[in-house]
Simulated assay, not measured.
Amino acid sequence: MNDYEAKQAARKARLEELAANARGASTATYKRARSMAEAIPFGQPILVGHHSEGRDRNFRSRIHSTYGKAFALDDKAKHYEQKAASVGTGGISSDDPAALTKLRAELADMEASQERMKAANKIIRQRAGDEDAQVDGLLALGWLTNERARELVRPDFAGRVGFPGYALTNNNANMRRVKLRIAELEQRRQRADVEQEGKGYTYREDTAENRVMFEFPGKPDEAIRALLKSHAFKWSPSRGAWVRQLNNAGLWAAQQVRTALEKIA
């Protein structure tokens, strides 16, 4: 497990802990609200005009409020559970030091899959009209089960046999996408770090952090913060800077911000 993967695992654990804490607090709060409600006899109305009316109304209001807090905590628990479940499911991150290795492995799998589908379709075409011969040929490839081979040689709902054209087209498009990402990451890895002083800020491109960032001597005013946020820069307390990922979009956004900052200054 590299540093990035360790950070992801730690983040997932933190979110799971937050979810568990919120879930526990929700359960406890719900039980407290229910206990409060049980103190009122079933069907007991508010005695309008009685000396207890005000106290009774306040008590019922607290019950309602406590139930509301329980439901809000339950929503909070679900939020953290969903965030924890999503950690690591967004594909290969450019922040991962092993991203290039993983992308190349992913590309190799896609290329192998493309060749397998093409080989299977070729056998089906060459042995058209003889289902058993088609199946024997597919099984000889060594990666299909008999059941799957039978499915491939029998027409689907659209009358197609073998792997449909869209499957190869989609896989080919994914290969192009991964190749572009590999090329972009390779180019980025060759970049030198950048640090430039602007009017009231320091601009940096940190290849190790994979971040483009703006540093200010103090808290920038509201207009500058709005400018940064409008270009997807986020405040990073650990870095003491406004950052976003170092990619083509990030570099373009940084240039827009720098141009605007020079005009503001």
Rank of each mutant, 00 (worst) to 15 (best):
Met36Pro: 00
Gly90Cys: 05
Tyr201His: 09
Lys31Val: 11
Glu16Ala: 10
Gly49Asp: 04
Asp156Cys: 05
Arg191Trp: 12
Gln256Asp: 04
Lys83Cys: 03
Ser113Asn: 14
Met110Asp: 12
Ile46Met: 00
Pro97Leu: 05
Arg62Trp: 07
Tyr166Ala: 10
Trp143Thr: 14
Glu5Gly: 01
Lys76Val: 06
Ile224Trp: 03
Asn170Ala: 12
Asp206Ala: 08
Met117Glu: 06
Ala158Glu: 12
Ala6Lys: 15
Gln44Ala: 08
Met110Glu: 12
Leu18Gln: 14
Gly91Thr: 06
Ala108Tyr: 08
Thr259Leu: 06
Pro164His: 06
Asp95Gln: 15
Arg239Glu: 05
Arg177Met: 10
Ser230Arg: 10
Gln82Ser: 14
Ser52Leu: 07
Ala253Val: 06
Ile92His: 03
Asn210Arg: 14
Lys102His: 02
Glu195His: 08
Ala253Leu: 04
Ile264Leu: 13
Pro164Val: 04
Glu147Val: 11
Arg176Glu: 12
Thr259Ser: 11
Asn58Arg: 14
Leu141Ser: 05
Asp95Trp: 12
Val153Gly: 01
Ala265Met: 04
Glu209Tyr: 08
Asn210Lys: 14
Gly90Met: 09
Trp235Ala: 09
Ser236Leu: 04
Arg57Met: 05
Ala9Gly: 00
Ser26Leu: 00
Asn146Glu: 14
Thr145Gly: 09
Arg176Gly: 06
Ala108Cys: 06
Gly91Pro: 03
Arg60His: 02
Gly54His: 07
Glu53Leu: 03
Asn248Ile: 11
Ile182Ala: 03
Ala9Glu: 09
Ser113Glu: 13
Glu209Asn: 10
Lys179Tyr: 04
Ser93Phe: 05
Asp109Gly: 08
Tyr30Leu: 12
Glu209Thr: 08
Asn171Arg: 14
Ser65Met: 10
Asp3Met: 12
Glu262Arg: 13
Arg32Met: 10
Lys199Met: 09
Gly165Arg: 13
Asp56Phe: 00
Gln196Leu: 14
Gln114Leu: 14
Asp206Leu: 05
Asp109Phe: 07
Val135Tyr: 01
Pro220Arg: 06
Ala254Phe: 01
Arg34Ser: 09
Ala37Ser: 09
Val257Thr: 01
Glu16Cys: 03
Ala39Trp: 06
Ser61Cys: 04
Gly240Ile: 02
Phe42His: 08
Glu53Asn: 03
Gln44Leu: 01
Asn247Leu: 05
Ala241Cys: 02
Leu144Met: 11
Arg62Gln: 11
Leu152Thr: 01
Gln44Asp: 03
Ala70His: 01
Asn174Trp: 10
Arg189Gln: 15
Val212Tyr: 00
Tyr67Pro: 02
Ser230Thr: 05
Glu222Ser: 13
Leu139Thr: 08
Thr207Ser: 08
Leu47Trp: 13
Thr66Arg: 04
Lys83Ser: 09
